[in-house]
Write a protein that binds this DNA or RNA. Sequence first.
DNA 1: TAAGTTGTTCGGGG
DNA 2: CCCCCGAACAACTT
Length: 244
Amino acid sequence: MPEGPSILLLKNKLQRYKGKMVTEASGYGEMDKSAIQNVKLEEIETFGKNLIFTFKNFFVTVHLGLFGSMLVNKRKKVNASFALHFSDAEINFYVANTHFYRGRPRDFFNYKTDILKEEYDGEFVLSTLQEKFADKMIGDALMEQELFTGVGNIIRIESLYRAKIHPDSLVKDIPEKKLVYLIEAVVNYAYEFLDQLKTDSVKEQALIYGKKTCPKDKKELAIGEMGRIKRKTYVCPKCQKMYQ
DNA sequence: TAAGTTGTTCGGGG
DNA sequence: CCCCCGAACAACTT
């Protein structure tokens, strides 16, 4: 279910639990939950596709993968993999991967790469992209969470279309101006995605993701796996330039 | 009904 | 030691 914007939306929904006491944690996940007992939930944050629950000396990340979901004060038939309990409420996660960290999130995660954070730094992303990912195809590089934290398949497809770049173009062959435009398009579209989630219209409003033809000239899209990554890719071969 | 999917981790081989 | 790739995992929709 989730790319970065979906996780940010979940975070926003949970803000009312900030400052509340967590009475206990449960779930079949293997993470040690013994420290999460009668502790105050100090912050709820995100980093890319991770939801972060911050306590005084530790924090827990929750990642929903492809099939995960969250319910507040409701339960599914299947067991939760992780749950936080309050005196009068509960947050349940299904098919979620969790990690326990001692310390603070900022000491572990580089907020400069998170497409939905204030601290996002497009210049840092650009220079890292050119230095460390020059020989990769841009369609693959966009999925690297250490560089484009929070980008998933939909944001990848849609931002490449907006920037008119073919995903199989090597980073080193793409003019810097185009990369700058792409990096801006990623963030702009991520915020559009966030808005569209509120009306459940992400797929409807996508320009080429899940579509058969290009909205510009109604020509057929190329659809299939491209690059190294095993994800379905949508491209308009006419609009999106292959740099080489 | 079987296939497809907004994702990551792990381990083996090169 | 690093990179690459395939397998594994899981639940829900069409």
